[in-house]
Amino acid sequence: MNFFVDKDGFYGEFGGSFIPEMLSNNVRKLQKEYKNIIKSCSFQNSYREILKNFVGRPSPLFFCKKYSAKYKAKIFLKREDLNHTGSHKINNTVGQAILANKLGKKKIIAETGAGQHGVATATVCALMDLECLIFMGEKDMHRQSSNVIRMKSLGARVIPVISGEKTLKDAVNEAIRYWINNPESYYLIGSTVGPHPYPQMVADFQSIISEEIKNQLKKIEGFYKPNYVIACIGGGSNAAGSFYHFLNDRSVNLIAVEAAGLGVKTNKTAASIFCGTKGVLHGSMTLLLQDKDGQVLPAHSISPGLDYPGIGPMHSNLFVKKRVNFIHATDKEALDSGCELARLEGIIPALESAHALVALKKVVFKESDVIVITLSGRGDKDIDVYDKFYSKLNY
């Protein structure tokens, strides 16, 4: 069974390229040249050198002693939070920025929700002397104000988006509109969403995560296959990277945790797998939150990075083919798990990553199981949210 993209840009029945005519030249050029460019020695040398000496890879695979004792399994965290800029997002922005340079593009546009992709994009643009425009929902700018400051400090122009729900979906909409009117720019998408080849590109660049997990586990445990790999999922970039090199090995159980918001039975959720239906969102066929007329519904999550009404086509296919077990976590469950990790192991996770930790309370593991959870980002940006909910509790 094939879990990867085919020559036409589809993952089974999902994917493809559903775009306005004004973008066809840009997207077709990417489709034509992307694979040849990233396979070249010059690209790979630049990419690996920057990941090593600028980003700080490989990120550690950390054994959680107290966490493991509590949940009676052997639990490791893949510490993407320790990357430069504080999340996994920079793995992708480095790759796409090099690609944009080789395509002769000097103006980069991007969207961001939690701000981590925006910060990572602004960072590589400063490094590579590229003009940078970041679209961010006004609501998210207030929720993630520290990341807005970081983006501006790095020289990026942050453009508030005041349409719709003023969150990630709306930022993507505005970025695409800008791209249509400014085709000389390069759109640096942050997740495994959008028209082909973007979902494939982002998954390829994030696959460094599972590549390292295999190598690190081999050194630590003497074998390269964990029993479980767990990741949170919105659009799906960190999950794609965490699962990538294990997809064809069914002895490795893969778990993706969606943001349920206030619950999957409410209208305040971002659980596209559990509450969504098939349709087109931002250039690809996928599963998304929509009404009976095909209008995209608002998504809700306490995590701005998971506050998106769809999921990448790769993950829609993995769900339909039952390769990945999808579960969901509410805002409250994520906050509880994030605070628990902080108190037990001295690590404050991003609220996005905290959703992945909830799987430990919902799945029954054996004591012999080796579990790897990708900690996609650090919680500095969310500290006010943690404080608001828990400062008065003796947690």
Rank of each mutant, 00 (worst) to 15 (best):
L217K: 06
P226H: 07
H282C: 14
I189S: 07
G276K: 03
G279T: 05
L217C: 10
L281H: 06
G276M: 08
H282E: 13
P226F: 07
G261M: 09
D307R: 12
N215E: 15
A260E: 10
V252Q: 02
P309Y: 01
I230D: 11
G222Y: 02
S210G: 11
N227L: 01
I208W: 10
D291A: 08
Q200C: 09
E184Y: 08
D307E: 15
I302Y: 04
V202R: 07
T192V: 15
I233T: 14
S251H: 12
G234A: 12
S207F: 02
S210P: 06
P199A: 03
Q216F: 00
A271T: 12
L287Q: 08
L297V: 08
P309W: 02
P197G: 06
N267G: 13
S272W: 02
N248W: 00
Q206H: 14
D291L: 10
G234I: 08
T269A: 06
V264H: 01
S237T: 13
I255N: 04
L247N: 07
K214L: 13
H300L: 04
T266C: 13
H245M: 01
G241C: 03
D307S: 12
Q216V: 02
G236S: 13
I230K: 08
V264F: 02
N227K: 15
S237D: 14
R250H: 14
G294A: 06
H245W: 05
S251T: 15
N215M: 10
E212I: 04
Y186Q: 05
L217V: 05
P195T: 03
V252R: 01
S207K: 07
R250G: 06
S272I: 07
D204P: 03
T192F: 05
F223D: 15
A231P: 11
L297R: 12
P197Q: 02
H245D: 12
I273F: 09
T269K: 11
H282T: 06
F274W: 04
K292H: 13
G261F: 00
D204F: 00
I189N: 05
A203M: 10
P183H: 01
S185R: 11
V296E: 12
L217R: 06
A270L: 07
I220M: 13
N248F: 03
I273A: 13
Y224G: 08
N238D: 11
E258P: 03
A259K: 10
Y198T: 13
E211V: 04
K278D: 15
E211N: 12
R250T: 14
E184A: 10
Y186G: 05
L297W: 02
N238H: 12
P298V: 10
T286F: 05
G283L: 05
G279Q: 09
T192H: 04
L254R: 03
V202Q: 09
S301D: 00
P197A: 05
A231D: 07
S242C: 08
S237L: 12
S251K: 15
V193P: 04
Y187V: 09
D291K: 09
P197F: 01
N248G: 08
K219L: 15
D204N: 11
T266L: 11
D291Y: 04
H245L: 01
L281D: 09
P309Q: 08
N238G: 14
I273T: 11
T192D: 14
K268T: 03
D291T: 09
Q206F: 03
V193L: 15
C275E: 07
Q216L: 10
S210M: 03
C275G: 10
